[in-house]
């Protein structure tokens, strides 16, 4: 459904994308991961036709995205990172506007508004002014605007920023249902747990290229590391080979239980202060860390926007 080849983009002297390749199949949710400024938003903007690339190609549903954008528009839905709704209009007017813009009209539009509102729990809010909604409700409306025309390819750029737990759960469930119906979803996020919850495939963007790409289980098996963590009352003792962090020490190891046992045996008098032992199995976060060398920090929403504008 989405085929990106050799995509490059620079803002002045800052190279954001350097020959990026990415394929997303119908029905696949692709968790697009990367730190702030890695180029996630730039990739989405180029693929959606909002921003010109310096080089490379993007094909969507077999069509050249740089030359066939008119035909592609109806097949693509985009919920950008920044909340984009009309706050002085009602929820239903917002939905009607963006449905109409994407070619959905008349009874089909009314039906789609009802369906999407139901799916994202907006049905009781249709007559409310969008500006009066809570943060989570606004985020759901923002995402709903991208779903009205039944796109085959969906770009969701950090769709759960500012959403509460309930809204987040509803959004993730909706994304999974869309994928089950055959929609390809590019899901840019810093929340790795969401990618794990949805069983999405993983694309880790670093240094302007996709550094790691594959199914979640494969990426975790390839790069993930299990960790043993020992927590003490008061300052943790210093042990060789263990990372010291206040009251905790932790160590990444192929067999963390054995490492924890060995550490406990070496504690001597400090053993009486031991409060907790935790074994953290290999997960996406540890795989991400291994690939990129840094943690997936949460996004201040303005930062990537500034990057994209720069």
């Amino acid at each position: 459904m989405l085929q990106v080849r050799g995509l490059s983009k620079a803002y002045g002297r800052l190279e954001v994308l350097r020959g990026l390749d990415l394929d997303v199949r119908p029905g696949e949710i692709c968790g697009l991961l990367g730190r702030n400024g890695a180029g996630k938003t730039t990739l989405v903007s180029i693929a959606a036709g909002l921003c010109a690339a310096d080089g490379g190609s993007v094909r969507i549903d077999g069509l050249d995205a740089f030359h066939d954008m008119r035909r592609i528009r109806s097949r693509v839905g985009v919920a950008p990172q920044d909340l984009g709704i009309y706050p002085t209009l009602s929820v239903s007017a917002n939905l009607a506007c963006f449905g109409g813009l994407n070619g959905v009209r008349g009874s089909a539009l009314r039906r789609r508004i009802a369906e999407v509102a139901e799916e994202l729990s907006l049905h009781d809010l249709l007559s409310r002014r969008a500006g009066t909604l809570s943060g989570g409700q606004k985020r759901r409306l923002h995402t709903a605007l991208a779903l009205l025309h039944g796109a085959k390819l969906l770009f969701l750029d950090e769709p759960t920023v500012g959403a509460d737990v309930v809204s987040r759960g509803e959004l993730l469930a909706a994304v999974k249902r869309l994928a089950n119906d055959g929609c390809a979803v590019v899901y840019a996020t810093h929340h790795l747990a969401e990618v794990e919850d949805m069983g999405a495939s993983v694309a880790i963007l670093e240094g302007g290229v996709i550094q790691e790409r594959g199914d979640l289980a494969v990426v975790v098996a390839r790069h993930g590391r299990s960790t043993a963590e020992l927590e003490f009352a008061g300052e943790a003792p210093v042990l060789a080979g263990w990372e010291h962090d206040g009251a905790c020490i932790r160590r990444t190891a192929p067999d963390p239980a054995r490492a924890a046992a060995a550490a406990i045996a070496a504690l001597d008098g400090d053993a009486t202060r031991l409060r907790n032992v935790r074994i953290v199995p290999a997960n996406l976060e540890s795989a991400y860390l291994a690939v990129t060398g840094h943690s997936p920090e949460p996004t201040p929403p303005e930062m990537e926007r500034v990057d994209a504008v720069a």
Binding site: L50, D82, G84, I85, Y86, P87, F98, L101, L145
Partner: peptide, 13 residues
């Protein structure tokens, strides 16, 4: 300000 300009651009010329 409402970030709707880009959303409108996504749909039309």
């Amino acid at each position: 300000g409402w970030n709707t300009w880009d959303r409108v651009r996504l749909a039309g010329d």
